[in-house]
């Protein structure tokens, strides 16, 4: 009865304008990087299939507009998210300080069932511009720890540093949520504690 159900993970990327959300997504999905900045309007998504522990998983990655005025899709957009990726620019302090409000915004809009354990991942982007850095790794890591041990990655969409690893973790954490809450119960089965006296069966 163990039918292999297709897994779809919805991942939402949030963060201030210009921190590299679109670039990270493009680097991960298309292995491409462009230096040209272009504001994202509203939101758009890319899909990528990947393997997580022998399972084929389709990741639907939503890239959003950092600018408020372009955010027009409403609450429904956040619904059903399996993981939220918070991105900041390690070279701009303000983008780090705003992580709090992005996180809150997400929790309010998405209204996950268990907000304390909802999987977030934080990415400190643009580490290729090392000499301009203002947010230390320590500072970022301690913020992540204070929010319930959010996994933290330092990335560069430009140099493709840590992008693959970060998204692999994103998928892994998202799938945990997916399995924990909506694991499909085959029709005809009831959720009951397993009868233990079945021990007589030989192995």
């Amino acid at each position: 009865m163990a039918t292999k159900k297709k897994v779809l993970l919805k991942v939402i990327i949030l963060g201030d304008t210009g921190v590299g959300k679109t670039s990270l997504m493009n680097q991960y999905v298309n292995k491409k990087f462009s230096n040209q900045y272009k504001a994202t309007i509203g939101a758009d998504f890319l899909t990528k299939e990947l393997m997580v522990d022998d399972r084929v998983v389709t990741m639907q990655i939503w890239d959003t507009a950092g600018q408020e005025r372009f955010q027009s899709l409403g609450v429904a957009f956040y619904r059903g998210a399996d993981c939220c990726v918070l991105v900041y620019d390690v070279n701009v302090a303000k983008t780090f300080e705003n992580l709090d409000s992005w996180r809150d915004e997400f929790l309010i809009q998405a209204g996950p069932r268990d907000p304390d354990n909802f999987p977030f991942v934080v990415l400190g982007n643009k580490i290729d511009m090392e000499n301009q850095r203002v947010v230390s790794q320590k500072r970022a890591a301690s913020w992540c720890q204070s929010k319930g041990n959010i996994p933290y990655f330092e990335t560069s969409a430009k140099e493709a540093i840590n992008v693959e690893q970060a998204f692999q973790t994103i998928a892994r954490n998202a799938i945990k949520l997916d399995e924990g809450l909506v694991f499909p119960i085959p029709p005809g089965f009831q959720v009951q504690p397993e009868p233990t006296p079945a021990k007589t069966t030989c192995c």
């Binding site: 309007i41 509203g42 939101a43 758009d44 998504f45 027009s72 409403g74 957009f77 619904r79 059903g80």
Partner: peptide
């Protein structure tokens, strides 16, 4: 319908229709 409507908007925006913005 909520999710479908989002996909419709995203699709149409990519093809030049974006009355909102």
């Amino acid at each position: 319908s909520d999710e479908v409507n989002i996909h419709i908007q995203v699709h149409l925006r990519n093809f030049g229709l974006d009355p909102v913005n």
